[in-house]
């Protein structure tokens, strides 16, 4: 579950629920290494958990790429979650609170939108790509 310390980005295949744990654990680890606060670590881990779980539930399998996109001014963690499943036909609808086709709470996608600083979805049958990012300014200690 460890992030290679120098790697700027790495991809985790998402095939079963242990991969969800691996992905969110790795995201949390990177956040901790960038000295993000524990609330941010929890937010990021939860967001990764939501999107990777959706992959398992709606697309079967996919990938989760975690990128350290920090620069001199800010610390930035970008996560790209991709699958080749059926796609999300109506994105605004899927982003609505309480909308679920799988008997869930329908809180995953709208929740991620509120948890992260950036969130984009592109989807067509056969390729769905969700990108999200968390940005925090650098401080003298980070």
């Amino acid at each position: 579950m460890t992030v290679p310390p120098e790697a700027a980005e790495f991809t985790i295949p998402i095939r079963d629920s242990t991969d969800v744990l691996r992905a969110r654990g790795s995201a949390r680890e990177l956040a901790a290494r960038l000295k993000l606060g524990s609330a941010d670590q929890t937010r990021l881990a939860t967001a990764v958990s939501e999107l990777t779980r959706n992959i398992l539930q709606y697309a079967g399998e996919g990938t989760c790429t975690i990128i350290n996109a920090s620069d001199d001014h800010q610390r930035c963690i970008r996560v790209i979650v991709e699958d080749h499943g059926p796609g999300i036909p109506d994105i605004p609808l899927a982003l609505r609170d309480g909308y679920s086709t799988g008997g869930g709470l329908g809180a995953g996608l709208p929740g991620v939108q509120r948890l992260m600083d950036e969130f984009q979805i592109t989807s067509q049958p056969g390729h769905t790509c969700l990108t999200m990012a968390m940005n925090r300014p650098r401080t003298p200690f980070t």
Partner: peptide, 14 residues
């Protein structure tokens, strides 16, 4: 529920 967990749950709208 930890303080971090509580914040996150609120954001999720749970």
């Amino acid at each position: 529920i930890s303080p971090d967990g509580a914040q996150t749950l609120v954001k999720l709208g749970v």
